[in-house]
Simulated assay, not measured.
Amino acid sequence: MIPISILDLVRITQGSNARTALDNARDLARHAEQLGYSRFWMAEHHNMIGIASAATAVAIAHVAAGTSTIRVGAGGIMLPNHAPLVIAEQFGTLASLFPGRIDLGLGRAPGTDQITTRALRRDPASAESFPQDVLELQAFLSPATAGQSIVAVPGAGTEVPLWILGSSTFGARLAAELGLPYAFASHFAPDSLEAALQFYRAQFKPSAQQAVPHAMVGVNIIAAETDAEARRLATTQQMSFTDMFRGARGLSKPPIDDIDTYWSQSEKAQASHMLAYSIVGSMETVRAGMERLISITGADELMVVSDVFDHPSRLRSYEIIAEIARGMERPR
């Protein structure tokens, strides 16, 4: 079976609220655990009224408490928004509560707009220190040494596995240098996927955490009983991208019959480019798309986003994807 995981956007849909979104995430994680998914991640986004995972560590605790075996984590924490010590304490706490089940993916983007970046007290130049911040965080999660003046409590000695997230070769370069697993965000930034993975594998240096490179590829997959139904479900995500281009982010909208009535030709071109690796369709269509993506990338793992408005339909999408994955071999 090709390893598959879930990146849940914790969408707040029209007619619901943040509590419903968080409870749906927990319910999805329970199903994912039963279906054989490897991990369930949520991301740090701020000032977005349609996403409920801004307090990512708290959301992870909610999901982890409702599951038993699946790994739960951040995909990711935007490290320049935080002091590494604080993240070590937060994820050390999670690791203490849910030992052996917590992942920590790290990104260097702000995860929001410029106004909110200022509200976070984030210095725009702080992204430049991202590599040093990763090393500092890694040190705080390592066993404390004699005479160490600052210790993350809890955190020290938990050695929470770190991942580098990226949408360019910068993240690939850092992950390779530090010997960490790498996750590429091709579910919204497809342009550098193949180049980044090639660089990561070629330059990878083994580390105490990771002996060999491990590349995870983010991909939008929406599966349904028929191609037509899957395409209709996919209009929810297409409208979200269109609204983002318009600067009008809002709650997740129910699917519509004809997306061409919603977006302009230029918006369609923008969204289609960002969603270039998306796979939408019936079981047969999705299987062919997953096989093609794995053939192109040699992905060691797929991180699936199935951004579907209706929760039961979303569960069904992930069921179909898991059934397909069980019949697929790991890449060699």
Rank of each mutant, 00 (worst) to 15 (best):
L97I: 01
V304H: 04
E136T: 15
Y182S: 06
F241V: 14
D307P: 15
P181R: 06
W263K: 11
I256L: 13
K205S: 14
L94K: 06
P80I: 03
L233G: 03
Q90P: 08
D243C: 00
E128L: 15
F91L: 13
A25Q: 12
V219P: 02
A224N: 09
S192F: 13
E89L: 04
F241I: 13
A175R: 04
R11F: 10
T69F: 07
V153M: 11
S313A: 13
T117S: 08
G247T: 12
P154D: 00
D23T: 15
Q132N: 11
A288L: 01
I60H: 01
I221M: 03
S272R: 00
T93W: 09
I222V: 15
G298Y: 04
M78L: 06
A146D: 13
R292M: 00
E159Q: 15
L302Q: 05
D310R: 02
R292H: 04
S126Y: 10
A234Y: 04
V134K: 00
R330H: 13
A230I: 01
F309V: 06
S278R: 00
M283V: 09
Q198C: 09
P161I: 04
A29K: 06
H31A: 14
L141T: 04
A95V: 06
F188S: 12
A25K: 09
A152Y: 09
E194T: 06
R30S: 12
H311N: 02
G73I: 03
E194Q: 13
R231A: 15
G105W: 03
L79M: 01
L293A: 02
A125T: 10
S192N: 13
H187S: 07
F91R: 01
T236R: 06
V134E: 02
L137G: 10
V304T: 04
R316I: 00
R316L: 09
L104Q: 13
V86T: 12
D133C: 04
H273Y: 05
P190M: 10
F204Q: 07
S278E: 05
